[in-house]
Each structure stands twice: as structure tokens, then as C-alpha cells.
């Protein structure tokens, strides 16, 4: 089994870890009932009733699936 010969320096560890980056998703901005909503494009949305209980998933005005 291959074994590291030397201890990895703090600098090289940190240089490697500095490359772990999250990229921001591209969102679309829509205004629903006066509220600005950012959401992923081409994706069904959850429809909720007035108390916030999820009812079903909707895409382009059509019921697609249950939650």
C-alpha cells in the first residue's frame, strides 16, 4: 500500500482547502402577489394554503405532483 512519505504542511493543506467553493445557482426573479420570489428556473413549485400547509406541486399553472 502506498504511504505518504512526509507530513502535509499546513500551507499546502490550506491551499487545497481554499479551492473548495460553492457556486451560486442561477435564479429567476418573479413577483407573486407583490412579493419578489427567487427560484430555480424550469422547476415545479409547491403550492401552499393560507396557513402554509403544502398542498401540491404546480408548474405552468398545472398540478404536477403531490408533495
Amino acid at each position: 500500500m502506498a504511504v505518504p512519505k512526509r507530513k502535509m504542511s499546513r500551507a499546502s493543506t490550506r491551499m487545497r482547502r481554499a479551492q473548495w467553493k460553492a457556486d451560486a445557482p442561477t435564479l429567476v426573479k418573479t413577483i407573486e402577489n407583490g412579493k419578489t420570489v427567487y427560484s430555480l428556473p424550469h422547476r415545479a413549485k409547491v403550492v401552499t394554503d393560507s396557513t402554509g400547509t403544502p398542498l401540491y406541486m404546480e408548474y405552468k399553472g398545472r398540478k404536477v405532483a403531490d408533495v
Binding site: 424550469h42 422547476r43 415545479a44 406541486m57 408548474y59 404536477v64 405532483a65
Partner: peptide, 9 residues
Amino acid sequence: GYTRITKLG
């Protein structure tokens, strides 16, 4: 085009 695919999450 008999099928439709909708992304959910």
C-alpha cells in the same frame, strides 16, 4: 411527444 417531464426538486 407522448411524454412530459417536469422537474420537481
